[in-house]
Design a binder for these strands. Structure first.
Lengths: 229, 229
DNA sequence: ATACACTGGTGTAATTTTTACACAATAGCT
DNA sequence: AGCTATTGTGTAAAAATTACACCAGTGTAT
């Protein structure tokens, strides 16, 4: 029976949950309750049930952790080194998820196994297991995908300013971009819809709000490189 | 014990093994010996042992299948739908491998579970399980990576002509490229070394041979986008 | 009300990259 | 010697990318 339990827990999902707030890119970390790595910060994750597909499992686990559904989740790598976990080989499929921190549906940390905190990606502590490596791999994938997938709009509120969009790009790519060139380029794609609305409650000139037009986006990019990516 | 065996076989590795021959991109398929999908063509693959990391397992399995070592292998996706395998949920980590078909060390089909055949990627039969989907996903990843990783040189013989290189790009990208522009671009990177040697045994003007200079390549691209990709 | 602080919004010129395109040179074969 | 097949080469136009600076609005403090 002990043997059986061991095999049941061979698989897990770990999530790098990205959020964007106050001009900074952040990820969600939990603090571990149990050994090994008790009290260490770690990526949220959980075991996969035996009768569950991994996509389902990823959605379930993320829901349990954040109370949110319908997030953009994407698998980016599977880690299965014999030594990555002290208890023996545990294979983990890593996903990243993108969430709007200022979402109406607030994140409910009470639903998390242990307290959860947002950490700026530029200043992460050492993480349990090989989670630092998992994070780095995920962050690099995110970076790459930024240029060919509409990732940014999952991290921003529905209505956003071009400055916010630019800050997000800068945070992900970790470099400064030129304001005029950035705007010219983004608008030239033709999938940003300018709204008749401006920022509220700011103590300076309010910026125009835009939203991402998914419909136009797919029309423009449907024949880019086959159907699936 | 029956239970135990069931858990032991939950994981597998499937490989999309690309090769390039006679101007065509091909993959290696086996024909299945057993039910389910007896006699169907399938991607070569095998179960992962319990005390084995997945990278190790991938190398071992590929070695058993082809007799080759030190191939460029890369994980590209993990498939774990409950219904992908009639026997229940079997998670498979998919890798692609790139091999030189005209390698000195010949492929030994005798070492394969069942006869193995090269198939042009443009004309594949229906494959067992979800292997068609796995292949497509892998092919798309290969395509993407072609533009930022020196993949092509793993598929060509050590010494190759620019025409061969172009044909390979055309096969992977599935489109015609302009000869002059292609050459200009490739040479501009500065990591192709022109040899003092020409093609032999051709009934037309022999082309210069080049080789890929891995040393220069890493020098040029080391600081492209962080260290790991 | 005026000045200040702060962010929003805009255009142009130079440079680089990408694209389109055609023909002479070479080697084997007859 | 002439035929055939493939190699190898340059230039001009178009498109994309880069670099760069100042006025316009809006709220706040005086």
């Amino acid at each position: 029976m002990e043997q059986l339990v061991k095999f049941e827990s061979e698989f897990s999902i770990d999530c790098v949950i990205f959020g964007f707030e106050a001009g900074e890119l952040k990820i969600l970390l939990i603090e571990r309750n149990d050994e090994p790595f008790k009290d260490w910060p770690a990526l949220p994750g959980n075991l996969v049930e035996n009768d569950e597909g991994i996509e389902e499992a990823a959605e379930r686990i993320l829901h349990e952790l954040t109370g949110l559904d319908d997030l953009h989740m994407e698998q980016f790598h599977t880690f299965g080194d014999v030594h990555r976990h002290p208890r023996g080989r545990i294979i983990t499929v890593a996903y990243y998820a993108l969430i709007r921190i200022d979402s109406q549906k607030e994140l409910k940390p009470g639903q998390l196994a242990k307290k959860a905190l947002w950490h700026t990606v530029n200043d992460l502590p050492k993480l349990a297991f090989d989670h630092t490596e998992i994070f780095k791999t995920g962050f690099n994938k995110l970076r790459r995908r930024l240029s060919y997938q509409p990732i940014a709009y999952e991290l921003l509120p529905e209505k956003f300013t071009l400055t916010q969009l630019q800050q997000l790009y800068e945070a992900i790519l970790n470099k400064k971009l030129d304001k005029r060139n950035f705007r010219k380029k983004m608008l030239s794609y033709g999938f940003l819809k300018e709204l008749d609305e401006k920022q509220k409650n700011v103590s300076f000139r309010a910026a125009k709000l835009y939203k991402f037009d998914r419909r136009k986006y797919s029309k423009i990019f449907q024949n880019e490189l086959g159907v699936d990516v």
